[in-house]
Design a protein around this nucleic acid. Sequence first.
DNA 1: CTGTTAGCGCCTTCAC
DNA 2: GTGAAGGCGCTAACAG
Lengths: 345, 345
Amino acid sequence: MPTIKDVARRAGVSTMTVSRVINNADYISQETRERVEQAIAELDYLPNALARSLRFKQTKTIALVLTDIANPFFTGVLRGVEDAAVAQGFSVLFCNTDESEQVERDYLSILMQKQVDGVLLVPATAHSEAATQLRVRGVPLVAIDRRMHTPVDTVRGDSERAAHALTRHLIELGHRQIAAITGPTDVSTANDRLAGYGRALAEVGIPLNPDLICVDDFMTEGGYRSTQRLLHAPVRPTAIFAGNNFIAFGAFRALREAGLSVPDDLSLVTFDDLPSSWLMSPFLTTANQPAYEIGQRATELLIARLNGEADTDPREIVLPVELIIRRSSAPPHDDRPRLPVKTLE
Amino acid sequence: MPTIKDVARRAGVSTMTVSRVINNADYISQETRERVEQAIAELDYLPNALARSLRFKQTKTIALVLTDIANPFFTGVLRGVEDAAVAQGFSVLFCNTDESEQVERDYLSILMQKQVDGVLLVPATAHSEAATQLRVRGVPLVAIDRRMHTPVDTVRGDSERAAHALTRHLIELGHRQIAAITGPTDVSTANDRLAGYGRALAEVGIPLNPDLICVDDFMTEGGYRSTQRLLHAPVRPTAIFAGNNFIAFGAFRALREAGLSVPDDLSLVTFDDLPSSWLMSPFLTTANQPAYEIGQRATELLIARLNGEADTDPREIVLPVELIIRRSSAPPHDDRPRLPVKTLE
DNA sequence: CTGTTAGCGCCTTCAC
DNA sequence: GTGAAGGCGCTAACAG
C-alpha cells in the first residue's frame, strides 16, 4: 500500500507537493503536477482517508441509526439517506437498534469514537439521551420519523393529521366502534397517531373507549396479540386502526384465524403498508408516508448543519402523508350477530 | 473533546499509562488504574478511533456493497450482516450500487481510502474488477448471492437447484410450454436459474424454445416488458418462471392488464417473494433463499479471513433454497381458446 | 510498574 | 513554486 512518501520519492518531490496535487491546491507548476500525477497513477496510490480525517477533523461519514430495516418504510428512508449522502460525498454507517435503548446507546458511543460527522437517528424512545450525548461532543443530530423530548432537528411525516384522516375515513363510512392499536407510548409516532385518532372521534362526539385502545409493540406480534384481546372485549369494534404496517399484518392474521373477514366483518386501516408495486392485489387502506423524501430531507438538513449553515434553532420538517383508500375499509354491517365468514383468499 | 493527553494530565500520569488502561494491558498498579479510570469518567473521555486505526491498521469496519436494498431479499441479507458484524465488534458501511458497475467502482475506491477491513459485495456483474482491485490492496472480499469470474470467497443460495425444482414442479403439474424471464446474462444468478430451468426441461425431453426465454433486467419493469412480449409470441406459455421477485411482480401486473388470471390462465413461480408475515394472503409459489443466513455466513467468513484464519483457497458456501408451493401454480387448462377471465382480486 | 522516544499518513505553517 | 519542521491522537518498543 503506497503512501504519500512513496509517491513523493518516485516523482522526485516532497510529500508536501504531492499533498498539494491531491488537494489540487494552487501554485503548482504544470510540469510538477504532471510528474506527480504520473507517479500516483503508476503506484496506483490512494490517499489514506484515516490520516486525512485525523488532520481535517472530518470523516465525510454520517451514521444512520434506525430501529428496524426490515420495515419497508425504513428501507425507503435508507435509500433517501444514501442517495443524498453520496451526492455530497458522504458515506453512511448503518446501525440497526431493534428498538433497544441499550443498543442505541452502545452504537452512539462507537459512532462518536469513529468520529462520524453527524448522526441520523430514529430514536428508540422519545426520552433517549442520544441528543445530549451527541451535543456534548458537538456531533450534529437529526431525528427521523419520531420526535424527541429534547429539542432537536427532526424530519418526519405528519402522523397526527394522517391518523385523523384515516379515522375520519372510517367514521364517514359509518363506523362508530373503532379500535386503535399502537406502539409504545414513549414513541412519538404512537402518541401522535393516537392523538389524531382521538381528535377525529371527538369531532363527531364519539367518546374514547379505553377498551378499544391497545398499546403494544410496533411489531407483527403486537398487532396479533392486541387484536385477539379486542375480539374478546365487551364491545366488538367494527373497524381497527393499526398504528403501523406490522401491526396491521398481525391484526389481519388474528382476524383470519378467528374466521373473520376484512372488510366484511371488520375494516382495517393502517400506516405505510408495502410498496404497491410488490402487491398482487393491493388491499390495505393506508396513510402512506414519503419515506424516501424523509430520508433525503433529513440528510440534507444534517449536512447543512455540518457545514455550519442554517445555524439557528432546531428545525422541524413535517411532511404530508398521502391517504390511499383500498378494499380493506368498507361500511360496517349492522350489529346483529352473524356467522363467521371465511376470509377473502 | 478531551484527548488522551487531557486524561493523562488530570490523572497525573503519562499518556502511555492511560493508553495501557484503555487497552487493559497488564502491569498497571491497581491504584494508578483507578486514578486513570476516574479521570476518564470525569472528562467523559472516548478514545479517537481514527488515531487508533491509523496505528493498528485496522478500522473494525467492513463494507456491505449491494445492488438494491429495496429488494426484501437484500434487506434480509443486511440484517444478517449487521448482526454478525456487531457480534464481533465491527461496524458496517452501507453502499447501494443500483446495479451500476460505475457506482460500484467509485464506492470501492472510497472504501479502500477509508481503509475498511473487508468488503462484502453483491457484484453488479460477474466480470466486475472489484476482486482484483481489492486483492492488490490486500482487502479481503466475500461475494454475496452472485458468483464472479475471478475466484473469490462466495456465499450464495443454490439457484440452479432451486430453479430446477420450481420448473420440475411446473412440469409435474402438467405444463409443457414454460416461459422463463431472467435478469442480465452477466449476472450469475440469472444464468444459474436459467440453467436449472433448462435442466428440468431436458430431463423430460422438452426442447428449449428461444421464444419462451426472455432476458431483461431484474426489476419490475423487466418482468412487465418481457411478459407483454410473451403474450404476443407465436406460442403462448401456460406457465412463467420468473427469475426473481421483482420480475414476478411485473409479470403479474402485465398478466392482469391483459385480462389474464393466475393461476387459471397461467401459472407463475419465482424466487424470494416477500416475507410471508407481510402478506394478507400469500400467493406466489416461490423458491425462498435464506437471506439472513447468507448475510451472516458471509460476514463470518469475511471476519475469519481478516483474522488470518482459514487462509486457504477461495471458499464457496452454497446454501439450500426452500420450495414454497402456493396458489400461483396449478395444472394448465387445455389449450382451446378461452375467453379472458377477470383476474383474482 | 511507568515514562520517553518515535512514527502511523497526512497537512498547516512558515521559510526559502 | 516548493520544502522542512511539527503535530493531529494514539501506541509499540524500549528504558528505567
